[in-house]
């Protein structure tokens, strides 16, 4: 019977000790420990969520990068194509211009040649005329050595003038 009869002393000391223990542990142990565990769990959760978000962001960025690459490639192709057409255009134009220019030059040259030819011809004519005048002069001089012949010529010339 004694075994199952609580003794007042032990009841008193146990109550006192347990209440003190409860108060002390609550203040100095459970509060910081539970708080720290809770905080750490939250930070772990947060970190996991962040990792998940980062993964998604990475996937998004990768797909975006691919898109960008494709776009860039297409753009490059377009630019190349444009450049080619532009080059062809420029070449064609240059060719045309060169032809026109050439034609113009030829024309100019022709005109110059013509002019030169004319000038040369004129000079030739001049020389021919002066030569012929000289010749004529020499001929006349030789023919008009005597006075009679000179008078006959003058008379002749005068005759012509009177007729006019």
């Amino acid at each position: 019977m004694e075994l199952v009869t609580p003794s007042i002393g032990l009841v008193f000391w146990t109550s006192l000790a347990f209440i003190c223990l409860l108060i002390l542990l609550r203040k100095f142990a459970w509060k910081p420990i539970l708080g720290a565990i809770h905080e750490r769990e939250q930070s772990i959760d947060e970190a996991l969520n962040k990792a998940e978000l980062a993964k998604q962001e990475m996937a998004r960025l990768t797909s975006q990068n691919q898109d960008l690459m494709q776009q860039a490639r297409a753009e490059r192709d377009e630019i190349l194509k444009e450049a080619k057409t532009l080059k062809d255009g420029i070449l064609n134009e240059a060719k045309k211009q060169a032809q026109v220019e050439g034609a113009k030059l030829i024309e100019k040259a022709k005109i110059e040649i013509e002019n030169q030819k004319k000038a040369a011809l004129a000079e030739v004519k001049d020389q021919v005329s002066s030569l012929s005048l000289e010749i004529a002069e020499r001929v006349l001089r030789t023919q008009l050595d005597d006075k009679t012949k000179q008078e006959a010529l003058v008379a002749n010339l005068l005759k012509d003038v009177e007729l006019n």
Partner: peptide, 8 residues
């Protein structure tokens, strides 16, 4: 001890 378990 029954006293301790009694208090608990």
């Amino acid at each position: 001890n029954i006293a301790l378990t009694f208090v608990m």
